[in-house]
Computed example of a mutant assay.
Amino acid sequence: MRKYEFTGETQNIECTGKVITLHRIRAARDFMGVKKEELGGWIETEDNLSHSENAWVSGNARVFGDAQVSGNARVFGDAQVSGNAWVLGDAWVLGDAQVSGNAWVLGDARVSGDAQVSG
């Protein structure tokens, strides 16, 4: 069963000289503290956020490119996950943190504040 849907609301951002369209998500069912109809954050495609498990993107957080959020991971606040980055397990990316490139954030890791993780 799908856990989120696109709301129809979009925003365009510029990244490395190209414009990317992000889509706001909304929870399609209750799961792990997220209530049905709750607005989520912004993703480029459904490949960015798993429909299985309990991962969630909320607030003004953005996930795009080939980045993936899965497991019980959370990306929220004004955080950004991009490139080929993965956020998985019970990891959190929050605040103004940025995870990009080929970086992986996993386990019980927390990336917050103005932190930047790349690789």
Rank of each mutant, 00 (worst) to 15 (best):
residue 1 M to L: 08
residue 2 R to P: 15
residue 4 Y to S: 06
residue 7 T to C: 12
residue 7 T to Y: 10
residue 7 T to I: 13
residue 8 G to A: 05
residue 8 G to F: 03
residue 8 G to D: 08
residue 8 G to W: 04
residue 10 T to V: 13
residue 10 T to N: 00
residue 10 T to E: 08
residue 12 N to C: 10
residue 13 I to D: 02
residue 13 I to Q: 02
residue 14 E to D: 12
residue 14 E to P: 03
residue 15 C to Q: 09
residue 15 C to T: 13
residue 16 T to L: 09
residue 17 G to W: 14
residue 18 K to G: 12
residue 18 K to E: 15
residue 18 K to R: 15
residue 18 K to Y: 09
residue 18 K to D: 12
residue 18 K to F: 11
residue 18 K to H: 14
residue 20 I to V: 15
residue 21 T to M: 13
residue 22 L to A: 07
residue 23 H to N: 15
residue 23 H to C: 12
residue 24 R to Q: 12
residue 24 R to N: 01
residue 25 I to F: 00
residue 27 A to E: 02
residue 28 A to C: 00
residue 29 R to S: 08
residue 29 R to L: 06
residue 29 R to E: 13
residue 29 R to D: 02
residue 31 F to E: 01
residue 31 F to K: 01
residue 31 F to W: 05
residue 32 M to F: 15
residue 33 G to D: 13
residue 35 K to T: 12
residue 37 E to H: 11
residue 37 E to F: 10
residue 39 L to R: 09
residue 39 L to M: 13
residue 39 L to S: 07
residue 40 G to V: 14
residue 40 G to M: 11
residue 42 W to M: 13
residue 42 W to A: 09
residue 43 I to K: 02
residue 45 T to G: 03
residue 46 E to G: 06
residue 48 N to A: 04
residue 50 S to E: 11
residue 50 S to W: 01
residue 51 H to R: 06
residue 52 S to A: 15
residue 52 S to H: 13
residue 53 E to I: 06
residue 53 E to Q: 14
residue 54 N to H: 11
residue 54 N to M: 06
residue 54 N to F: 13
residue 54 N to G: 05
residue 56 W to D: 03
residue 57 V to A: 01
residue 58 S to T: 14
residue 58 S to H: 03
residue 58 S to F: 03
residue 59 G to D: 09
residue 60 N to G: 00
residue 60 N to R: 01
residue 60 N to V: 00
residue 62 R to T: 07
residue 62 R to W: 00
residue 64 F to Y: 11
residue 64 F to T: 01
residue 65 G to R: 03
residue 65 G to E: 02
residue 68 Q to G: 12
residue 69 V to S: 03
residue 69 V to C: 08
residue 71 G to I: 07
residue 71 G to W: 04
residue 72 N to A: 14
residue 72 N to W: 05
residue 72 N to M: 07
residue 73 A to C: 03
residue 74 R to C: 06
residue 75 V to A: 00
residue 75 V to N: 00
residue 76 F to K: 07
residue 76 F to P: 01
residue 78 D to T: 11
residue 78 D to L: 06
residue 78 D to A: 09
residue 80 Q to H: 05
residue 80 Q to C: 14
residue 81 V to A: 02
residue 83 G to W: 02
residue 84 N to R: 12
residue 86 W to E: 12
residue 86 W to L: 10
residue 87 V to Q: 07
residue 88 L to K: 15
residue 89 G to F: 09
residue 91 A to I: 14
residue 91 A to Q: 13
residue 92 W to S: 11
residue 93 V to A: 07
residue 93 V to K: 02
residue 94 L to N: 13
residue 95 G to P: 05
residue 95 G to C: 06
residue 96 D to R: 14
residue 98 Q to T: 12
residue 98 Q to W: 11
residue 98 Q to R: 14
residue 100 S to W: 10
residue 100 S to R: 13
residue 100 S to G: 14
residue 101 G to S: 04
residue 101 G to D: 04
residue 101 G to W: 01
residue 102 N to W: 05
residue 103 A to R: 05
residue 104 W to G: 04
residue 104 W to Q: 15
residue 105 V to A: 04
residue 106 L to R: 10
residue 107 G to S: 08
residue 107 G to C: 06
residue 108 D to A: 05
residue 108 D to E: 14
residue 109 A to L: 10
residue 111 V to M: 05
residue 111 V to E: 04
residue 112 S to Y: 07
residue 114 D to Y: 11
residue 115 A to V: 07
residue 116 Q to F: 04
residue 116 Q to G: 03
residue 117 V to S: 08
residue 117 V to K: 04
residue 117 V to H: 03
residue 118 S to K: 07
residue 118 S to E: 10
residue 119 G to R: 10
